[in-house]
Amino acid sequence: MRSRVSSGQGIWIFGSLIAVLGVGVISLGIGPAWLAPAEVIRTLAGGGTQVSRAIVFEIRLPRIILGALVGGALGVSGAAMQGLFRNPMADPYIVGVSPGAALGAVVAIATGVSAGFAGLSAVPIAAFLGGMGAAASVVALARRGGRFPVTDLLLVGLAVGAFAAAVYSFIILTLNPNKVSSVLFWLLGSLAPADWSRVVAALPYLVVATFGLLLLSRELDVFSLGEEQAGYLGIRVERLKLLAVAFAALAAAAAVAVSGVIGFVGLIVPHVARLFAGPRHVLLLPVSGLWGAAFLMLADDAARTILSAEEIPVGIITALCGAPFFLYLLNRSRKRGL
């Protein structure tokens, strides 16, 4: 039984990994200058022309790696938050991360601070701090005598998020129109500003958060029995909640900082993964991460190419393709009586 489960597990993860690499290679070829997959591979291996090397390494690769990292982190943390809240409506931004990050970014854009750090401009840094600040205040406000009731985390997250949204909406009203469009672009999420410095800056947070959540898989399974029963099985429930929320917030804040608020990936991908790979987090989290990576790369391909003159914010694509596909799957699984 156990060995069969884990060999099936291996197939899912291996297959998904191949799919991610395939999507990555194709995405590297897509753009104003089309490169065939064979040429992409040749270039990656050190061959290719000087032009193809410039296109692949300088222009496309950082963006695609960033897309994969962000998509993966959103997939994993979305799955973890749905597990923690035992609620399929949960996503990585659930503890107020996205409105908090948006507030940070809007403040940075509005004030026009130009101070940067480690090759990053002020906006991603402010967004990261805003997201983490919101998550930290949600956790602090939901605390009740050493405990963090899940429903309180959810409700306080809503309240803090609404508050932050009110503040940044007010700031946006006072902005001049050219700044408004850059705010809007950021709010809808985009990988356009990707470069190697953003990849390097986000990488450690995304990796730590993703692997941190992967380590919590088993405990998240037990958590689905309910908090009290999980406690009876020897889980340190409050610590698990804190760790999971902290890792998810870290992943979400880092992702938002480098790519804006990309919605729907962290909500839909875990769902779809659960329909295919089952509810066990040991498998669900890596599969969600890999599919999230592939999905965001594909969505970004579309964002880059649909309109030849300009880019579409990738968040619009993820919602536009994701929502109908999700409804289709939901309907199909209902018919099967699952």
């Binding site: 039984m1 597990g83 035992r86 609620n87 088993r218 405990e219 399974d221 037990v222 689905s224 029995l225 309910g226 009290e228 029963q229 009876y232 099985l233 020897g234 889980i235 659960r274 089952g278 509810p279 066990r280 699952l338």
Partner: peptide
């Protein structure tokens, strides 16, 4: 503690659709 004391309460289904085997295997958590 969980290796010595187990609790069976009236509970509904788990939040996600695990198999019976997977649920029993959760008893090995401790």
């Amino acid at each position: 503690f969980a290796r010595r004391l187990a609790v069976v309460s009236q509970e509904g289904t788990p939040a996600f659709d695990y198999t019976a085997y997977e649920v029993v295997a959760m008893g090995r958590t401790p």
